[in-house]
Simulated scan of single mutants.
Amino acid sequence: MSGKIFHAPFLALHPGFEITGSWERSKKLIQQDYPEVKSYPSLESVLEDEEVELVIVNTPIDSHFEYTKKVLLAGKHAVVEKAFTVSLAEAQELHALAQEKGLKLSVFQNRRWDSDFKTVKRIVDQGVLGELVEVTFSYEQHTPELSPKAHLETPTPGSGLLRDRGSHITDQALSLFGMPNAVFADLRIVRPGSIVNDYFELLLFYDQLRVRLKGGFVAREAVPAYVLQGLRGSFLKSRGDLQEDKLVAGEKPNTTDWCTEPEEKRGVLHTEVDGVVKRELVETEKGSYLDYFEGVYDSIVNNIAEPVTSADGVNTMTIIDAALRSDAEQRVIRL
């Protein structure tokens, strides 16, 4: 699903990339959409192909470290799906290896290029809320039934909602506010029949700011996914990016009108500017995962930083590692 929906359409659209093929471990499907490419029989066959310069690792989380390490040792650049790795130690080892080899290693945190989060970032960058005091990012929906994807519901080192969706909003928070001073976490199992964590709440402690990150499957009535409270004002924004829905429906991305949120999803800004209090709906930014791939291309061709660096991945895994310890020990973990 990841390759078909989130990666191949943008690689095919971007003029700087040529899809060479895919290692398909079970179903052989890529040639139905891209008949000119290869279906590799093994990872080794991918790594032995001298044409291949960049490998995207989009397997289940608990195999990310093994496969990405092989990719880097073969001298090829890598993009790794979220969560980066199972553990902080694995993330640090891959980061160090990429640095040693002079290779580009990026984590696919595509949600930085969602329309809703891009709008939140614009509001933060503009400083119209004054000093931020409290921020909540949530990734919640109403799907109490267990997922048919076995790897999501089986207790493995890489399973659980914290690593799955939690890695997205953790990365978003760190990209805006940097690393916190401390972390407190509450992880739970709430769905009937579930045996992996399917609810999380993290509290990130900064000097004056508190950032709350929440995720779960039992929110029948959605609350704003982004709530920012500053000394001068508030900003509330629902989750409204349409890219995944369009891609799942089979639509192909383009470079002109991809992708605009409906107007009813606009965020509410209520703040004071130059002594005047105003409350208004604000225009939403356009989301585009193509911008992530443009950043990967630019990093390889022009030897600049990746759009999401392996150091960013290490930071996210630092928070997840601290959250797991915090929940287990029921205490605040200082970083």
Rank of each mutant, 00 (worst) to 15 (best):
M1R: 13
K4H: 12
F6W: 11
P9W: 15
A12G: 12
A12D: 15
L13H: 13
H14N: 13
G16F: 15
W23R: 08
E24G: 01
E24L: 00
P35G: 02
P35K: 09
P41N: 05
L43E: 10
L47S: 13
L54F: 03
I56D: 13
V57S: 01
V57F: 11
P60N: 02
S63F: 15
H64Y: 04
H64C: 07
E66Y: 07
T68F: 14
K69F: 03
V71R: 07
L73W: 05
H77P: 06
H77Q: 05
K82F: 06
A83K: 11
A91S: 14
Q92A: 13
E93P: 09
E100N: 14
K101N: 08
L103M: 07
L103R: 01
Q109T: 13
W113D: 06
W113V: 05
K118D: 08
V120C: 13
E131W: 04
V135I: 12
F137A: 01
Y139L: 13
K149W: 12
A150H: 07
E153C: 05
T154V: 08
G160W: 06
R163Q: 09
G166P: 03
S167F: 04
T170L: 08
L176Q: 08
G178F: 00
M179A: 01
P180R: 06
L187V: 04
I189H: 02
I189C: 02
P192E: 15
P192Y: 00
P192D: 13
G193Y: 06
N197Y: 11
D198T: 04
D198L: 07
Y199R: 10
L202Y: 04
L204W: 02
L204V: 04
L204A: 01
F205W: 10
F205I: 08
R212P: 02
K214V: 15
G216T: 03
V218M: 14
V218K: 13
E221C: 05
V223N: 14
P224M: 02
P224F: 01
L231N: 14
G233F: 05
S234T: 15
F235E: 09
F235C: 10
S238I: 00
S238P: 00
G240A: 12
D241C: 09
D241P: 03
Q243H: 04
Q243V: 07
D245M: 14
T256G: 10
T260I: 14
E261V: 08
E264Q: 11
V268R: 13
E272S: 15
E272Y: 00
V273W: 04
G275Q: 04
V276H: 08
E285A: 07
S288A: 11
F293W: 12
Y297I: 00
V301I: 09
V301C: 03
I304Y: 01
S310D: 06
D312Y: 00
D312E: 01
D312Q: 04
T316Y: 00
R325C: 02
A328Q: 14
E329I: 00
E329Y: 10
I333E: 07
